[in-house]
């Protein structure tokens, strides 16, 4: 092998170039960490700001009182109940519809223009601004279908809003199931639906649940589409109870009741000029952020657990 002579000069040059480039690379490492740190600090600052500002109001009275023009008396009972009921309607519509659509697109849809159209629509709907759903609710549910400014309108609107999230996570969950499982079930004579219902869905239900929780946490914080349908901000009563003493024990009157939800109550308090109401807003925000963070945290934890537990 021929021996190549390297002059000390060029060797030093190379060495300098390497260490310079390594330094720049190392600097970027620091910059990247800083960016991550900033994001974390923002999250912390937000939570701390809300809790610190809202602390004087975060007591039992705040949770058990209705809205009031006196900032000391005002509470979040009506929006808490409202949020819970709206979420119930949203989940009751979005989960079956979204999971069914996801199953269709992943397992059944033939490769033709119609399936392509549905797929494009799902992607597109995910990008439609939330307030546009509010306009749909105002023009269609409220004016055309005459559902009014009610819990059912709000639930429907938010269900449509989170439908793409549920569909996409359902598809991903189904795709993650190995085809071995399908083939085994088919080999035993199961029909397509039996394969899906008895085998694929039970295995993917965990991941689907994660997507549903993330979708619902998005819906619970959504304000804009409910403002357009005119969700009231001053409600001093609860919707009729869904459980009744006499037969048939269940009533659906509450579906048609006017309502308010947490984010709308918070928005209303933020936009008041009196600084005292900002404290109420902060307290409502702290409750809201606790709910969404808890839901998101649960989803992240579930996903982590399922990923760890499943070994195909």
């Amino acid at each position: 092998m021929a021996h190549v002579e390297i002059s000390t000069d060029s060797f030093q040059q190379t060495q300098a170039s390497v260490s310079r480039r390594q330094l720049i690379s190392g600097l970027f490492n620091v910059v990247g960490l800083l960016v991550i740190l900033v994001a974390t600090l923002v999250l912390l600052a937000l939570v701390i700001q809300l809790v610190a500002q809202g602390a004087p109001r975060l007591n039992w009275k705040f949770f058990s009182s209705f809205a009031s023009s006196d900032y000391n008396e005002a509470g979040i009972l009506a929006p808490l109940v409202g949020s819970a009921l709206v979420m119930l309607v949203t989940a009751a519509i979005a989960v079956p519809l979204g999971v069914a659509a996801g199953i269709y697109l992943e397992e059944y849809a033939p490769k033709n223009w119609l399936s392509a159209l549905i797929e494009i629509n799902v992607t597109n709907l995910a990008g439609v601004p939330s307030i546009v759903y509010g306009l749909l609710a105002l023009g269609f549910f409220n004016q055309t279908l005459k559902l009014g400014e009610s819990i059912v309108t709000a639930g429907l609107t938010l269900a449509l809003l989170i439908l793409p999230i549920v569909i996409v996570t359902t598809r991903e969950a189904l795709r993650a199931i190995p085809s071995l499982l399908r083939e085994a079930a088919y080999a035993l004579g199961a029909s397509k639906w039996q394969v899906i219902w008895d085998h694929i869905l039970p295995y993917s239900s965990g991941s689907i649940l994660t997507g549903v929780i993330i979708g619902l946490s998005r819906a619970i914080g959504e304000t804009a589409p409910l403002i357009t349908i005119g969700a009231l901000t001053f409600i001093a009563f609860l919707p009729p109870s869904p459980v009744k003493a006499e037969f048939p024990f269940i009533s659906f009157e509450w579906l048609q009741a006017p309502f308010t939800v947490m984010p709308i109550q918070m928005f209303n308090w933020v936009s008041r000029p009196e600084p005292e109401f900002q404290i109420n807003a902060a307290a409502a925000g702290a409750v809201l952020i606790f709910m969404t963070l808890a839901m998101n945290g649960l989803a992240i934890y579930l996903r982590y657990r399922f990923r760890k537990g499943v070994k195909w």
């Binding site: 991550i36 999250l43 937000l46 952020i289 969404t292």
Partner: peptide, 23 residues
């Protein structure tokens, strides 16, 4: 880090609005 970023994305926009106005 990824869960932290996810949590950041999950915060309701009305809370961000409050943060923008008052912080």
């Amino acid at each position: 880090v990824k869960p932290i970023l996810e949590l950041l994305a999950g915060i309701p926009t009305v809370v961000y609005g409050y943060f923008a106005l008052l912080f």
